[in-house]
Design a protein around this nucleic acid. Sequence first.
DNA 1: GCCTCCTATGAAAGCGCTCTCAGCCTAGGT
DNA 2: ACCTAGGCTGAGAGCGCTTTCATAGGAGGC
Lengths: 358, 358
Amino acid sequence: MSRTPSNGTKASSSNGTGTGTAPVRTLDDLAALSGVSRATVSRVINGGPVSEATRRRVQTALEGTNYRPNAAARTLASGRSGVVGVVMHLDPHMLFRDPYFSQLLQGMSDALSEQAIGMMLWLGNRSKEETLDHILWMGLLDGVIATAHEQEDRLVDGLLASSLPTVLVGHRRADPAASYVDVDHVHAADTITTHLVTIGRRRIGHITGRRGTVAGEDRLAGYLRAMRRAGLRTDALIVDGDFNKASGTAGALELLDRGIDGLFCANDAMADGALEAIRVRGLRVPDDVALAGFDDLDFAAQLDPPLTTIRQGVRQLGTEAALTLFQLLKDPAGGPRRVILPTELVIRQSTVGGVQRA
Amino acid sequence: MSRTPSNGTKASSSNGTGTGTAPVRTLDDLAALSGVSRATVSRVINGGPVSEATRRRVQTALEGTNYRPNAAARTLASGRSGVVGVVMHLDPHMLFRDPYFSQLLQGMSDALSEQAIGMMLWLGNRSKEETLDHILWMGLLDGVIATAHEQEDRLVDGLLASSLPTVLVGHRRADPAASYVDVDHVHAADTITTHLVTIGRRRIGHITGRRGTVAGEDRLAGYLRAMRRAGLRTDALIVDGDFNKASGTAGALELLDRGIDGLFCANDAMADGALEAIRVRGLRVPDDVALAGFDDLDFAAQLDPPLTTIRQGVRQLGTEAALTLFQLLKDPAGGPRRVILPTELVIRQSTVGGVQRA
DNA sequence: GCCTCCTATGAAAGCGCTCTCAGCCTAGGT
DNA sequence: ACCTAGGCTGAGAGCGCTTTCATAGGAGGC
């Protein structure tokens, strides 16, 4: 193994200072070139206190070269790498299918690239234990953002227990010391259920999300809270789903047999499935059954009829997670940060027939 | 700024060696603990030549601690970081919509995590110039994999011109020195067009992919080659598309007016759109118009009728790109590597009515 | 029993940068 | 003119690790 920095197969002929000159690779080279000390060059590059004249002189020298600071040396000396980890440990097909995760990733990427922070990504290729191990042994990370949709998650536990500053997307009630970003699922589910109540529905069914996930449990809790407040019964009106379209169809068929005039599905995909079930039974939406979802993914507005749902800014959730991590890094002693983003009830024709399109 | 490694807000009380003992953070700590030199501990950790007895002794000491090597120091000393960059500079909505990219990413992630290599990701958040700058200033990368679907791409040019070992996904004829992984679009398009010819179609239209992309141009070239070889005319049978469904519908409407009995769309999404157009015109598939796509995305088999198309192993393309980069890093002097993955013609009912489902 | 060769280990020189500390020089107050 | 304060700059000490080089100690050949 050579000590020279990786140079590929490409000859780096141009160093900008003319042929025959040694390439400018280190701060010392640059210092020699501009006639100041290494420390001063470092100050210029990192925006330290330097006189205007000196700054200009070094800048001029710098521009003639293709000098790039050595990130490893910088990290070693300063203790910060400018790299954060993003952990999305989930089934591959989830990442493919569910726009939620790509949007989340985009949101994070936006905020990170804004600050010129690097983003290392871990997906669900390996077991949670192995992934945790990789992350911790990687070193090099200033902090990490992890999706925490399961209520129990060894990977998340491991990150929180480590010394890595960690921000979760999604929260877990059991972690009082964790920093996280999330929406208030209970409140949002309550709101949309109440909407169904308000338009006069009495037998309102619920198809839950995957049990054991925060979103699944909390949305159920919100539904229950709204129903209880309205004095409505919920027994035999709840069917477990798993967030996938097929479980929406199956669940809806079951509930339709038991007789419902309203249906709140824990996400849009299942509402889409439920729509098919309702159609199969020859019923009309919203006349016979008012239908509501959760997420407001793109397709929700394209359904026939367009779907009433809860809009959460998934992309914003991602940016907010990154910003929260920045704060955590800036002031590690500031204690855990929690951010709850607002949601919005989007009313469309699946609950209110004659309404204008949103 | 403190020099201490980032420690978050969490107290790291356990160092595994009992209360009151100083935490084991460095090789020197570990060396003192196990009574050998730092060099020997380093050898144990990195699998260097060490006697079995010594190895065991160090391992034992190691297990009692939560020691993690400092990645920055390691990188600085060795010149390798164990991190590669992945660049997918494209419109955000592409990343959302097109399963191609998530699958590609998964494939890369598979191969990289297999080798415990870190993956830094750059998406299209900022301009190509800025992104290139970030990547090059990031340092720290052993190499980079970039998607190169456009024939002209400043970002790709910049990476190739840099000293970073680079592997492209997709190729560009103009880069004889570039390493890449791709499929033979020309050949595949020729094959599927020839299939249409074989089943007796004579007026075979083509809706191109976005012009200026390798896939768009090469698939067109393959179509033309097959048609020419078959002695068939192509004038007025080609309409430009852009890979999106809508352009498939529009293009098909146009071609149907001109009279066709076969249609090859440059990807499945456009074929899906074309299917709608054909239905609008009251024509039957494949009786009146035989229809073929390209990609074999999940939905292709779900269409009615199921779509004849070209299957390319997108995920495999990703893994192969990573493996190619590994080779490049192992033997930088070995010259550019090129990998062309095979494609497969998948015949379904959209071209051959009575055929068994694949 | 002596010399050679090889293996296992330790010592120490960096890798390129950040940041503290001390010193210099100028400016301003008296 | 003298002293103080403060702004710039340079020297240099690490940051924690890898890797070369030298050495010690055995094993084996003669």
